[in-house]
Design a protein around this nucleic acid. Structure first.
Lengths: 355, 355
DNA sequence: GGGCTTGGCTGAACCGGTCAAGCGACTATG
DNA sequence: CATAGTCGCTTGACCGGTTCAGCCAAGCCC
């Protein structure tokens, strides 16, 4: 009988070996489906293992196999913002769907800064806690890349490509879909268009800004870009600034769902009708952009699939069977109720009185 | 020189021992701050460890110490809904903030069903992958509780208390804050009030419904409760049904931020002015309820702190120093722009034309 | 029948830590 | 001065797997 507080002794391969009347080695061969035991013995061992409810001790396996059977993901954004950015949870869901099938764990850590993030990589790799990591929010000349290369920690970067191809990356053409979006609103007759961007240092932000500026220039549109830190406050501030200017834009393209929803709220609060006075375009197109009113026109990405692609690539990199880049399916432009045709060009823009 | 694909050999205590001219045992004592070595030797060993960039191999430590230095969290909600429910990311952030300080990992797994969740617990515990788990979304007569008790896997339940106190729990008084919310809208003159609840089987949902029904009865209000599965669609459906009824409520209290924001969108789309025609109350009060227009009146909880409390309690349970329940700080009612006084009781309720 | 191969299994080392027991040198005590 | 106790360190077993070398018996061939 077990006493209070005593933890049940768990089954090991030695227990199985004893019961089956064979050696530990034979049990190991049988359980791993490797040659070295007869079919009869193998069957017997498997049956006993099932009866006893055996699971391999991960620590023991990790110690001799020198793999942790775990991957890591460090997120260096403020918790409050993270919680609101559906991107990450969907991304994690996609990662998980691949990992759980292989019974590989996902370790997640939230940190404050890139320096902390690097320290986590050092520790994780030093402790052999992970076999590899996914790196998000790639920056221009990112210090994490150098450190990961130095450590030799297998990694796949989300977004990219990475300078000098120092690390393999999974990415898609951000600029192209931005161009598509700009062309669409231009076709609706809009001529003044603004972009509320994410963090300037992020590579994917720069790529989108490039696409935005080249497309607006090509089409001869008035363009403006305001950077934010992805927080709701900075998004609200940017929107307020744009809408209070003497000649406000008639379209704002946001860099995330949170920014877009916040912008929608600010516009409504300021008495701008959406899309009559101002058209709004979101990015990522998680559920949130579909439940607000009006539902947001957005750049749609299958984020769950993106996560799956990324982690599958990481597993290949860990195996050593891949080091190249992978281009994921690119986003699509999905028009909804938050974008409409431009006002007729009489120069004035009717504004509803504030409620 | 390292060849392509070769992984850097990482530093072990044997390397340190050799360098310091002492045995492995001495190094172990020194690095763990235990007696058994002189101050001079200890200093020398620590210096060498720092120079070499040593980190303890977690697998080795776990194998002999019989602890994984990891905690687990299984989420059994659909990925799309999870992504939109800021509660979980904030909760995870709170958990992390405590764990990272102790360099304990958090393993997260997303599953489809309670059965899958139980299977994950069996595997994790069998593999010694975790030392304990946090259990969310407690149900009435929850099969997970029995299984966790049977396994002997240390666990803390979020929400509760658990039947027969079979497992320790962290929870707060859901009914009381609901009563507070109902009293507030009653004081504004509202008499028809509806609740769009979460999953009926969840204990915290039942507690809130209890509080809702007892408060409305006590105040003599017309009350209605519609259950959902927390998805945006079911929330939209419930809202549509309520607002299309011959005598719609003038207040709807939602069970999560996602449901509330969705409800707001549906109300606006149906041409109901918020709060003039319909008042809306949200739950959890993450940032999302503050960025929409109008900002939502909500039940505010410090979810990050809630996560911190929960994981600290789990660590105590793992240590064996605690088995009792902990009552966390309860939510507060935060009025904002989405609730307003009831229309004067002329029996008619003006409705704005659909835009 | 002897030599050779092959299948099926055992035994032991090993991964990198922890930790109890032991041991020599030094100090304190009667 | 003999004995006991303490300090500082070493030795080696151990955690639960994996893996390699080796061994025995059976089968095959000539």
């Amino acid at each position: 009988m077990s006493e209070v507080g005593e933890r049940a002794r768990r089954v090991t391969i030695s227990d199985i070996a004893e019961r089956a009347g064979v050696s530990k080695g034979a049990v190991s061969y049988a359980l791993n489906g490797r040659p070295g035991v007869s079919d009869g013995t193998r069957e017997r061992i498997l049956t006993i293992a099932r009866e006893l409810g055996w699971y391999p001790n991960r620590a023991a396996r990790a110690l001799s196999a020198e793999r942790a059977d775990a991957c890591g993901l460090v997120l260096a954004r403020p918790a409050k913002t993270l919680a609101l950015e559906p991107f990450f949870m969907e991304f994690i869901a996609g990662v998980e769907s691949e990992l759980s099938a292989r019974s590989i764990a996902l370790s997640i850590q939230l940190v404050q800064s890139v320096e902390d993030e690097i320290e986590v990589y050092r520790r994780w790799w030093g402790e052999r806690r992970v076999d590899g990591v996914l790196v998000v929010d790639l920056r221009k000349s990112d210090p994490r890349v150098d450190e990961l290369v130095r450590l030799g920690l297998p990694a796949v970067v989300i977004g990219g490509p990475v300078e000098n191809r120092a690390l393999p990356a999974v990415w898609h053409d951000e600029a192209a879909v931005m161009v598509e979006a700009v062309r669409y609103v231009a076709a609706l007759g809009h001529t003044r268009i603004a972009r509320v961007a994410g963090v300037d240092e992020f590579v994917h932000t720069a790529q989108r800004t490039d696409g935005f500026l080249s497309a607006t220039e090509e089409l001869g549109l008035d363009a403006e870009v305001i950077a934010t830190d992805y927080s709701a406050e900075s998004g609200a501030r940017a929107t307020r600034k744009l809408l209070s200017s003497p000649e406000p834009p008639s379209v704002i393209v946001y860099d995330s769902d949170l920014l877009a929803v916040t912008g929608l709220g600010v516009a409504q609060q300021m008495g701008f009708a959406v899309p009559d006075d101002i058209s709004i375009v979101g990015w990522d197109d998680s559920l949130i952009s579909q439940v607000v009113h009006p539902p947001l026109t957005a750049i749609t990405r299958d984020i769950v699939a993106y996560g799956g692609t990324a982690i599958r690539h990481l597993l290949e990199v860990i195996e050593g069977t891949a080091t190249h880049d992978v281009e994921a399916q690119r986003g699509e432009f999905t028009p909804r109720g938050s974008t409409g045709p431009a006002r007729t060009a009489d120069g004035s823009r009717a504004r509803r009185a504030r409620v």
